[in-house]
Design a protein around this nucleic acid. Structure first.
Lengths: 235, 235
DNA sequence: CGGCACGTTGAAGGGCTTCAAGCTCTGTGG
DNA sequence: CCACAGAGCTTGAAGCCCTTCAACGTGCCG
């Protein structure tokens, strides 16, 4: 997004708040403030009591859940414009995972109490919140179905396609570069598999000229081929 | 819940609407109406355009997603008091799955347009909706983590424990009977596995006196043992 | 330019699926 | 009321996908 450092400049640019009257925006601006995270910094830990919601201004972050036996599962990745922790800020649940920065990021902090206040006063904001939650929930259902019914290859193909939507940058000849640091381990965590399996899978796809895989860096050469794999269609 | 057949009697008993003023309740009562489903009846199909939300008055139902290769995945089971399809009724998304009755059920139909109207007018209802979505979302995240990081045994143990919370009836000696028709196939669909694996798993647990498994019928004899399995702790 | 995180590749094995055959219970129609 | 058809369930065997463990490249960054 932008490198603005003044909260008053940033707020109106966030679609989420576009319906709010100036008085409410002013209230937000006087209460919300910015914070900065560097790579691998953690904003909150799984189980922390939720106090705030956040808006990503700049950078990339991800929400990870830790299972008892030490395995990590990536629940979501966030890019500029995304809301984080809204659910928990409003309900008082503890954060359902750990939020860590994939790169240097800037976030807008929105105290939960303030969100409550706005929500109670302005119904349109409530509707927006609901839309957002609905979207997340439907995505979560999709992932549950995929994890239940699909093979690793299909799920990885789907992840890459999803990332194409979220952080894809068009390159030459219809190829798309994923503008995000993305290690084999990261992809493994997103898909409930191991880094070795990811490595083998990507190597195979590279041999088939479907992608070009570098260190923490992937270019999708034939998106259509990935779609075929994701849908388990014959080549 | 109850066998009431008059909408006006039922509405105030649904916690979800408890905050509404009498005038709004009256409006609801005059618009909402009851419907009845028998076992295996389908209320809506995956992809149908969403028009209404529903409240379960009586019976058991489940939301199933179909994957391209014909595998079904159970996304949720609903019992009396649960809201169904709220997300989609409010956002206009198509239904994310097929809703089928596990037994004879009664449902209250709430037109989406009405829900919108109430939501815009009464902020507390919006908050309630958000809480509900938040809960569902957190549950979905839990399932994603489990599917990604856990073995079938653990996931099945967890399902049974969850069902204990939802439809468990205390029996003698601290055992709990699951008051729901639950075939091996059903359990398989809930956990992203096959009926054969479920059968083997349940047989093993029965041999260990952890459960008593009958035809579409399960009694949990040692809940604590299931917890140990779910958490992958040593016996 | 050396260390370390990231990545590759091989080999072994296990958890789970798949296919197959047969059993048991339930409910329904004659 | 009973028999039988079919849904639900069990069990075995084969094998595959994926994990796990291990050893070794590779390339980036201080």
């Amino acid at each position: 997004m932008v490198g603005l450092s003044n909260v008053r400049d940033i707020l109106p640019a966030i679609g989420f708040f576009s319906d709010l009257p100036p008085s409410a925006l002013e209230k937000l601006a006087s209460t919300a403030h910015l914070t900065r995270l560097d790579r691998d910094d953690v904003l909150f830990h799984q189980g922390d009591e939720a106090a705030s919601a956040y808006v990503v201004i700049d950078g990339r972050l991800r929400l990870v859940q830790h299972s008892a036996d030490g395995k990590d599962v990536t629940m979501a990745t966030f890019v500029p414009g995304d809301m984080i922790g809204l659910v928990v800020a409003l309900t008082g649940e503890p954060y359902p995972g750990t939020l860590e920065a994939l790169e240097t990021s800037q976030l807008l902090i929105l105290p939960g109490s303030l969100m409550w206040e706005l929500l109670t006063a302005y119904a349109p904001l409530g509707v927006r919140v609901i839309r957002l939650l609905a979207e997340r929930l439907i995505e979560a259902y999709d992932r549950i179905r995929e994890l239940s019914a699909e093979r690793v290859q299909q799920r990885v193909a789907r992840s890459l396609l999803r990332l194409t939507q979220k952080v894809g940058v068009p390159a030459e000849n219809g190829s798309v570069r994923l503008d995000i640091r993305l290690s084999r381990q990261d992809l493994a965590q997103m898909n409930g598999t191991t880094l070795e399996t990811i490595s083998r899978t990507l190597s195979a796809w590279e041999a088939d000229q479907i992608i070009a895989a570098g260190r923490e860096q992937i270019v999708i050469l034939k998106p259509h081929a990935l779609v075929r794999i994701a849908e388990d269609l014959p080549a």
